[in-house]
């Protein structure tokens, strides 16, 4: 099964690519994918996508097909063929 992972803002600067296709196995979750990405992109990526900022805001929001994982099953959300996963750091505009 293949999924598409997109990187936005400063996370893109760490990965140096805007999106990648990933091969996953049935039953794989967001958590599994994040571990795969940490291995691929290293410590900087892990720091940028785990925990919270000093002001208590999560370092990353994760969408699956446009839905924030917090309204799905969080990191345990299982992924399907063709899913689009988007990693968003805490940014805003107006």
């Amino acid at each position: 099964m293949r999924i598409l992972v997109k990187f936005l803002a400063n996370i893109r600067e760490i990965t140096d690519e805007s999106e990648i296709e990933l091969e996953i196995r049935p039953g794989d979750s967001i958590e599994t994918v994040m571990k795969t990405l940490e291995l691929r992109y290293g410590k900087g990526f892990k720091e940028a996508t785990t925990g919270t900022t000093t002001s208590g805001i999560p370092n990353v929001s994760i969408l699956v097909n446009g839905r924030d994982m917090d309204f799905l099953k969080g990191l345990k959300t299982e992924l399907q063929e063709g899913d689009i996963v988007v990693l968003i750091p805490p940014v805003a505009g107006g």
């Binding site: 936005l8 803002a9 400063n10 900022t53 750091p89 805490p90 940014v91 805003a92 505009g93 107006g94």
Partner: peptide, 19 residues
């Protein structure tokens, strides 16, 4: 300290079009 408004934060680095 806020990741959105800090001097190295999202608004400063990318502007509003980060959205």
């Amino acid at each position: 300290e806020n990741p959105v408004t800090s001097p190295t934060g999202g608004l400063h680095t990318y502007g509003t079009s980060i959205l």
